[in-house]
């Protein structure tokens, strides 16, 4: 429909955005609410029933304002158990309060660093993810620049192969690469994971960056050339800053893929240097018991990607390009 007037457009925008946002939020809210519910209720009642404070099991009935009552129906045990990596049959807090210290726990702050918990895994995840995000983007920026602004033999063929390489399934490459790593003694090192993610991140990174760089106006390069700039200075001083929005979005996604990857770190790094996804998947027993911890753990592992997303937002600013072209 044609939103003729500004006012009508605004209302339409607000309504449309609100509808989409609500639809998108519902599942996530469900996960969030579930992560604060006691395990016995998760399986037997819908997560939304938590808001009907006057219904539900007697044990959760209480006095006070709506919020107080709501608060009484929720628990942070799932988060505590996920953070400490508690695997017993009750909860970490209950065991500690009873005085029956769970095996391997001291019931003080140091339990946050328990090897089964998320703390150490968090550190490993960070160590894996940051180089595995930066390296492919770095190499890709160079290659993308060449594909966009150099003329060399075979670049069409190479670019075609590049697009095709994106679809190669990761599972197919594990065996040959692992064989190579073990011959080189790289098995179980962080370097092994960084390189693998770099290899798999490159085709898409080059593809995306080339398209952005290829879209830069030709005048930009001509004026730089007239000023006596070399390719190197053009690339570093002009092209890279201008490609920042693309680099930022690429950075977000490469970060996410590596952060949420389980298989690659499991195959090359193994359980000896567990990353967060490893700990998350191991909270549930092979028969599916304990998966309430998953909801809490899934939220914990979301925190960092969301921070990355927010902090890279500043690169999505209108007019960066326009200003640059003029200047």
């Amino acid at each position: 429909m044609n939103a003729g007037t500004k006012g009508g457009g605004k209302v339409f925008t607000t309504i449309a955005i609100s509808v989409i946002l609500i639809l998108w939020l519902i599942p996530t809210i469900g996960l969030l609410v579930t992560s604060f519910r006691p395990v016995s209720l998760i399986n037997t009642t819908g997560w939304w029933t938590v808001f009907y404070v006057n219904n539900g099991p007697e044990i959760n009935k209480s006095e006070g304002t709506y919020l107080q009552q709501l608060g009484n129906r929720l628990t942070i045990d799932n988060y505590i158990d996920a953070l400490t990596g508690y695997r017993g049959t009750t909860t970490y807090r209950k065991d500690c309060n009873d005085g029956s210290k769970p095996l391997g726990y001291k019931c003080d702050i140091s339990d946050l660093l328990n090897p089964r918990g998320m703390g150490r895994a968090f550190l490993n995840s960070v160590v894996v993810t940051i180089p595995a995000t930066i390296l492919p983007i770095l190499f890709a920026a160079f290659a993308a620049y060449a594909f966009a602004w150099f003329d060399f033999r075979g670049r069409y063929v190479l670019f075609a192969i590049l697009v095709g390489l994106q679809v190669v399934p990761l599972q197919m490459t594990l065996v040959p690469v692992l064989r190579m790593y073990s011959a080189l003694g790289l098995n179980g090192t962080f370097l092994a994971v960084w390189l693998f993610h770099t290899g798999f991140g490159l085709p898409y990174a080059i593809y995306l960056l080339r398209n952005f760089m290829g879209g830069l106006p030709r005048e930009l390069f001509e004026s730089a050339y007239l000023d006596g700039a070399t390719h190197w200075t053009t690339f570093t001083k002009l092209v890279l800053p201008l490609t920042m929005p693309a680099v930022a979005s690429l950075g977000i996604f490469q970060f996410l893929w590596v952060w949420n990857d389980l298989l690659v770190s499991l195959v090359f790094l193994g359980g000896t240097k567990p990353v967060m996804t490893y700990q998350i998947s191991n909270m549930v027993t092979s028969m599916g018991a304990g998966w309430h911890l998953l909801t809490a753990a899934a939220f914990l592992s979301m925190i960092v990607p969301m921070i990355v997303f927010f902090s890279l937002q500043k690169y999505f600013v209108r007019g960066m390009m326009a200003g640059a072209v003029k200047g």
Partner: peptide
């Protein structure tokens, strides 16, 4: 738009090509 040698473009492309060859092309 700018002068370029025969070699320069490859210096930009090669690191990425080598890594991809090892990790994707060879296994493929």
């Amino acid at each position: 738009v700018m002068k370029q040698g025969k070699v320069i473009p490859w210096l930009y492309v090669l690191p990425a090509l080598i890594i991809m060859t090892i990790f994707i092309v060879y296994p493929m």
